[in-house]
Design a protein around this nucleic acid. Sequence first.
RNA 1: GACCCCGUCGUCUAGCCUGGUCUAGGACAAGAGCUUUUCAAGCUCUCGACACGGGUUCAAAUCCCGUCGGGGUCACCA
Length: 436
Amino acid sequence: MVRVRFAPSPTGNLHIGGARTALFNWLYARAKSGKFILRIEDTDSARSKQEFVDEILNSLSWLGFNWDEIYYQSKRLDIYNEYAQKLLKEGKAYKEKAIDKPREAIIFKVPPQKIKIQDLIRGEIEFDTAVIKDQVLIKSDGTPTYNFACVVDDADMKITHVIRGDDHISNTPKQALLYEALGFSVPKFAHLPLIMGMEGGRLSKRTGATAISDYRKMGYLASALVNYLLLLSWAPGGNVELIDINQALKLFDVTQVNKTSATFDLKKLNWMNNQYLKNGDSEKLTDVLIPLLIEKNYISADGFDRDYLVSLVKLFQPRLTTLNDFCDWADFFFVKELKIEEEAEKKFLGGDLSREFRLFIEKLDKLEKFDILNIEAGFREVVKELNIESKALIHPIRVALTGKTIGPGLFEVIYYLGKELTQKRLGRWINGGSNA
RNA sequence: GACCCCGUCGUCUAGCCUGGUCUAGGACAAGAGCUUUUCAAGCUCUCGACACGGGUUCAAAUCCCGUCGGGGUCACCA
């Protein structure tokens, strides 16, 4: 039975790198019908915070990585101490009192030897432990160090495969020694390449957002983010870019993960998010959007027309990079006081459009049916009567109705805005006309 | 600095293990065009890489060595 684990430390948010490690672990577990275990490494009581535990769990759930078991290291202190005592008794460890510490720490005697690690991704890696100094097992405050707790837990939790970041390669020989000293069998290792920032070096806040929750807030879809993360250091082959998690489950093989570190490229994530948004189920997207719209006071929680919202979502879907774009681009459907971009107004509403707008307003009243086709037909007639180019009127109308120079097709906009609102917004620009 | 890992277009990658089908394929980005009602989307095209040097071989992106470059780790943090 395959048992893998993701072991975050709640000293910060779940970030891009951690999410990718969690993804590969989760995929491996699910693909092999194994167990995905979560282990909260909260032995550093000064830096660990409950809010981070909550944030990590929320992000993991949002991404869809459900776990089978969860453990907290802070509740397992007795176990670590027990094993430390055993090593002490066997003469494999010793106690030492640091000058500035009140109590003694338990320290592991590192035996000098050559040690070989088998890595599923990198093959064999050899180390000489002569360059490794003795390792603290239990700190003088009674809590275990990372490497010790990690080994004890991985053995105790019967972890079969340790899939983790590249930055742990140099911890591996230390841990291997501990497995040996404790008489535990050694799990298989797979060290994932790190995700780098655009400027080289580790992905950091300076390069952009690192927290998964930030991407969620910015309006990225979990499915798109997972797809993007999946393609960092792994490829399904066959020039496939868009791959859903179920297909990935069938194709993913941890031994085929690349050895080279990957750079996080927001532009490609943006492209991918647009692909998911564009092809996504409009109803589902609407449901995700509804809370955002309520928050912005665009709709009220107790009364909104969901079908109407779905239609609006469909209108914008192909042009959204993030969900939040919808709130920004579609605002004119919801606000009472239309904000008109200064530049747009200057460019398209500078002249007197009274005659044109009045004609169009009257035409809308004469339409057999107020639908997209008839609106367009009516508009074409107005343009013909006026003997002007379509775009000479389309752009001013768009700006008057939406406040923007960009947006969905004008006739759809008019249709969904409704006749009354359309006429009202156009009427504002008629001299001597109703200014309602 | 020591130890370890890695090195294909600007970025993500296919190819490498099992040399020849690679004048190196795809995607993002960038540039151009088509479409047109703006912006997206879509379609077409362009630009663009085997880090370098030595081997091995009839033949090397692929195998070997070296150099250089990038990254990681060297805590009573995890």
